[in-house]
Design a binder for these strands. Structure first.
Lengths: 185, 185
DNA sequence: CTTCGAGTAAACCGACCGGTATGGTTACTA
DNA sequence: TAGTAACCATACCGGTCGGTTTACTCGAAG
């Protein structure tokens, strides 16, 4: 990844997320990054490929963030560690996610299932589900898969509702429900 | 609402939802509806106003659907009636919602808070929250507002996750969680 | 019998879209 | 020192965007 490509990706991440993918032209990205369109196309090949790169990069940051928050403290009960995912979400929303889940938003703008970005979207959700499942297994519940599914639903729901601004304390509420859910599993 | 305007609105509803708002031009809507652009602009004034009309119309259909499913059966326990909202969602997804919540999707494409469509989006979520609160109050739980919030989170989460295709039985799962939540409230 | 709203048809506007082409410059490296 | 990768600058391509304008037709209501 060349320095120019890095700048393009960074700018694209900001513009795509803030304004929506279709609303942003490659010309705007190039000029904002201090790069010519030629360079942009030399590095990424097409806008669609750039979109996929943008999503991949954001997914990487999200995963790192979750893992950092969940695994920062050394000794902690597995059930509490599972709940830390909700704290990670709350921080993520406050710091990087004012316009909602970038992957849900991208999915709304990419109806073509063959779009290269669609794979990234699917993988992002799949990873979170698997991660939750792993944590749930460590808790020792009867049905880790089912619990992980429920928690994913709560997380996605909290993300959407808190973004839409209808319910301010959506993440905290979801965390409470999750706690109750874990205890009764 | 003139017949031509009606056709425009119907076509716009389909194209906007299936392809995303920005991806559809007014020219495509007009020609698909068998109408000239002049007629479209005489009736709706602007694309932004048409977007708001599209969302409003879809919200109306959604509310009618929910109310029909929830209130179809005469005598039924309030707790069971509350759970019928999840059945309504499942039907809605199967019949009209393969690409996820139109309002969440629209929110992703309309970053400008002053856009006329944003009001409709907010009102759609607000209505559902109020409706859930009313049903929760009839159940007689201690904190209807809190329960309604939790249910909204579950509904939005189930809608998103089942759309993204990561979890097939997301709505059923959410309903189970909701049942447990109601019983322990 | 006339007025008027609703509609068609078609051209037009400036702006922007994603993408390409040509050509030149810098800096590192084999 | 020759080659090459990375970059800049500019101009261009066909096509589409949202939106406007002019001119005309038609049917129904006053």
């Amino acid at each position: 990844m060349t320095p120019a490509a890095e700048r393009v990706l960074e700018v694209a991440g900001k513009l795509f997320y803030d304004n929506g993918i279709h609303a942003v032209g490659v010309e705007a990205i190039a000029s904002e990054a201090g790069v010519t369109k030629k360079t942009l196309y030399d590095r990424f090949g097409s806008k669609d490929a750039l979109i996929a790169h943008y999503l991949r990069r954001r997914d990487e940051r999200w995963r790192e963030h979750v893992i950092r928050v969940v695994e920062q403290r050394g000794r902690i009960a597995p059930a509490r560690r599972l709940l830390l995912v909700f704290d990670a979400l709350e921080q993520w929303i406050a710091e990087e996610n004012p316009r909602g889940c970038a992957f849900v938003n991208a999915h709304a703008e990419l109806p073509d299932a063959a779009h290269p970005g669609r794979d990234v979207i699917r993988e992002q959700k799949q990873w979170l589900l698997e991660y939750l499942r792993t944590l749930a297994r460590e808790v020792g519940v009867r049905n880790p898969r089912k619990l992980a599914t429920s928690l994913l639903v709560l997380i996605e729901g909290a993300n959407v509702t808190s973004t839409l601004g209808v319910v301010p304390g959506a993440v905290g509420n979801a965390k409470e429900v999750a706690k109750q859910l874990i205890e009764s599993s």
